[in-house]
Simulated scan of single mutants.
Amino acid sequence: MIGFAQTTGSETLKRYFQRGKDIANKHIEVFGSILRENDLPVVMTWDTEVTDQTSFVFSDKLMLYQMLALNRLGLSYYGLSMSNSPRHDLGVHYTWLMAEIAQFTEDGIEIMIDHGWLEQPPQAADRGQLMNE
């Protein structure tokens, strides 16, 4: 997200990617604190691997699509982890963090729709309107 934020030309996407970085840092802190409380090692982030590149490498559309795909994957991993974890205390963290990721993903989809990169997702038919037509 850091790399995407520093290589996009769009201020909207720059703010979106920075928000994603902040959300990711919060998730790392939440689960890192649980690991530390249980005397387990906390994994290191890959922030040091991000280059100082600022020129446009990928299109904004591709970067946002990749971000949304990773968000969906992360949501599925959290759901799988919650369903398989014997620790009920973790379920609370998964639930509220999943809600945050879902809102972040929805905001990204709105950006895609606003830019014409994605059509409006399929909607259920309005049966009341259909009956009145």
Rank of each mutant, 00 (worst) to 15 (best):
S55V: 11
S59H: 01
T8A: 06
N25K: 12
H115E: 15
V43R: 13
E29F: 05
V42Q: 13
M131R: 13
E133Q: 10
H27M: 12
R36W: 09
H115R: 13
I28Y: 10
F31G: 04
Q66Y: 14
H27S: 10
H93S: 15
I113D: 07
D47S: 15
F4H: 04
E106R: 07
P41W: 00
G79I: 02
I23K: 03
R19C: 11
L35T: 08
K61T: 02
A102R: 08
Y65K: 05
S85A: 03
H93A: 15
A24W: 09
L64T: 00
L73H: 10
F31L: 07
Y78T: 01
G108N: 01
N84P: 00
A24R: 11
I34W: 14
Q66S: 14
H115A: 15
M67T: 14
Y77A: 12
L68E: 03
L118Q: 10
A5R: 01
S81V: 00
L64W: 02
G20D: 07
S33A: 13
F17P: 03
L80K: 05
E100S: 09
G116C: 09
S83Y: 12
V30G: 00
F4M: 05
N38S: 14
A124P: 09
K61W: 04
H27F: 14
G79M: 03
L62P: 01
M131F: 10
L73K: 07
Q53D: 11
A124I: 04
D114Y: 05
F17W: 07
T51Q: 09
G91A: 13
L75A: 04
M98T: 09
V57F: 02
G74Q: 10
S83Q: 04
I101L: 14
Y77N: 05
E119T: 15
W46K: 15
T105I: 03
W96I: 12
G3S: 10
Y77F: 11
I111P: 01
T12I: 10
Q123M: 15
Q120S: 08
G116S: 06
D39W: 04
Q18D: 10
Q6W: 00
P121Y: 06
S59P: 09
Q53K: 12
I109S: 02
G79N: 04
T7G: 04
M112W: 00
L80P: 00
D60R: 05
I23L: 15
E11Q: 12
T8F: 03
M112F: 02
T51D: 08
E106K: 10
L68W: 02
D114R: 10
T48I: 13
S10Y: 02
R19N: 14
H93L: 08
F104T: 03
P86H: 06
V57N: 05
W117M: 09
Q53T: 13
L80N: 07
L62A: 15
G79E: 08
G20W: 07
A99W: 05
M98N: 09
T7C: 07
K26E: 11
I28C: 11
I111T: 09
F4Q: 06
P121Q: 07
F104R: 07
G32K: 04
F104N: 12
A125D: 08
D60M: 05
E29D: 12
T8S: 02
Y94H: 06
L75S: 02
L90I: 08
E37I: 14
G9E: 06
Y78F: 12
E133N: 12
I101E: 10
D60T: 02
Q53M: 10
L97G: 06
I113W: 00
A69C: 09
L118M: 07
H27I: 11
